[in-house]
Design a protein around this nucleic acid. Structure first.
Lengths: 271, 271
DNA sequence: CGGATTTGTTCCGCTGAATGGAACGTTTCG
DNA sequence: CGAAACGTTCCATTCAGCGGAACAAATCCG
């Protein structure tokens, strides 16, 4: 029984590959031949998949140039993935934090028992500390943002994760269950998570949760810098800056208003 | 040979149904049973599809609550459908126009040989004229926004569409090829399209193109109102307001900067 | 301009991927 | 605690998807 690549449904797997190829291609779209080459399938197969995706609106075909591109339905579905709306909402906050501190700022959300980095913004400070890429995952609890997410979950949830996820955390030796329990306590007491070089020796990071109405963390903002830039006093200031933006986001989530861009109000012209 | 519903690839069609069900459900996600009921498939089938989608990251499963929701990969793909980025960019413009005029404002993009309405904003004027829903399509040329899109395409393209798309336009008797040719000429001369009750008698609309660097229309802004609110003078004012926002959008597309939210600049805190 | 080549589309017989009924666990609820 | 609903796994059957090949259309080039 040959291992096929981890997909449980072949067609879904292949269709997803096709979509990803289109996503990474130019916005004008790709020709059938390009798609065929990139996904490594016969042209008949690629053609059939593309037209299947065309039927459901995930792909669009410019009949003149015969170029395939991602379609409107996919855009709609992406926008309907509401958990991630926070990325758009938080973009200005990340930019302000990066500009204000000079360091690298991350936005993470909880995804199952992992923290998923969904956005990043880089400040001007010359030594850049890119420990996480957008799309990267960490076990819950490992790293400042991830720890902030874990510390503000339900008690039962935390207990389960500490108990079950040993395997996932094992590559990070400083994050065993008993050490994590202490960290969670401190995080809750101070309101922010602190990672003092536990993953990469020279690097430290602060993280704060973004809470929903029920007080559960749905996202985390964090800042990473070399340890010299993370001593007591500065750390407190960073935590404070993070907290202020995180609160703003919490309020935005609660009211579901995007951001006060509406400052510029235009008066009535004709009625 | 029973008609199955128009899908050329069954699995893609079914998977798309599953995703749409998840999209229309609550953001906490849906249980397997809910999905099963909504798509009308056996639970074994629904389960397999969901796990196939899980493998490619289009769906996420909260293992504690056993709820399925749209996943991060779908969000990423949606964001990669760059043609539609303009929706986010244009939202403030639509809001300003709706507030400033009181009427209904539409954003359309070209999709093949159709105009696709991708966003709408409603003003306060009591008589609302909702001729188009978001997601609706019209043949290119039919309606103010659609006409603005058509008029600013390549010559060859326009010729082909006028020649080939009779069938698509036939439900709209006032938009035959020869009449359209005149309309296009006028639209180009004045810089805006005008639909003086050609679709729905009591309704009129103005539309302007959003041009890319090459001068081709990639989108259109339009305003619809009852004919009384669309006389000569007001029409000119509306066209002017649309034009100004459309130009702004063109510039945004060219530079690919989102919007000048960055008004509030935070000063350096520590470096 | 016409022949060669590359690209796109359709066809069709074969096959294994997807199917779904059923049986087995697991959770939920009264 | 027992019953009902829900989630997961299994497996024989079959039809959906497969892909080689033939055909058609567009593109290149001498």
């Amino acid at each position: 029984m040959p291992e096929n690549g981890g997909a449980s449904v072949q067609t879904i797997d292949r269709a997803a590959s096709v979509l990803r190829v289109l996503a990474s291609g130019p916005s004008e779209g790709l020709r059938l031949a390009d798609v065929t080459a990139a996904v490594g399938l016969g042209k008949a197969t690629a053609h059939r998949l593309l037209h299947g995706l065309l039927d459901v609106g995930f792909v669009e075909l410019d009949t003149a140039s015969k170029r395939y591109a991602l379609g409107y339905e996919l855009f709609v579905l992406g926008a309907a993935a509401r958990r991630f709306q926070i990325v758009d909402m938080a973009r200005p906050a990340l930019a302000r934090l990066a500009a204000g501190t000079g360091d690298t700022v991350y936005l993470s959300v909880r995804d199952g028992d992992q923290a998923l980095c969904v956005d990043r913004s880089t400040g001007h400070y010359p030594i850049r500390t890119l420990t996480l890429d957008v799309g990267d995952r960490r076990p819950l609890g490992v790293g400042a943002g991830s720890l902030a997410l874990l510390a503000f979950q339900d008690e039962a949830e935390i207990a389960r994760i500490l108990r079950d996820d040993h395997a996932a955390r094992s590559p990070f030796e400083r994050f065993a269950a008993d050490r994590l329990r202490d960290m969670i306590r401190i995080t809750r007491a101070t309101g922010h998570a602190f990672n003092d070089g536990y993953i990469v020796g020279a690097m430290a990071a602060v993280g704060v949760p973004v809470l929903d109405e029920t007080g559960k963390a749905v996202a985390a903002l964090s800042i990473a810098a070399i340890r010299e830039r993370m001593q007591e006093a500065r750390r407190a200031e960073l935590a404070e800056a993070l907290r202020s933006e995180a609160d703003r986001l919490s309020r935005m989530l609660a009211t579901n208003r995007p951001d006060e861009t509406g400052a510029e109000q235009t008066r009535e012209e004709l009625s």
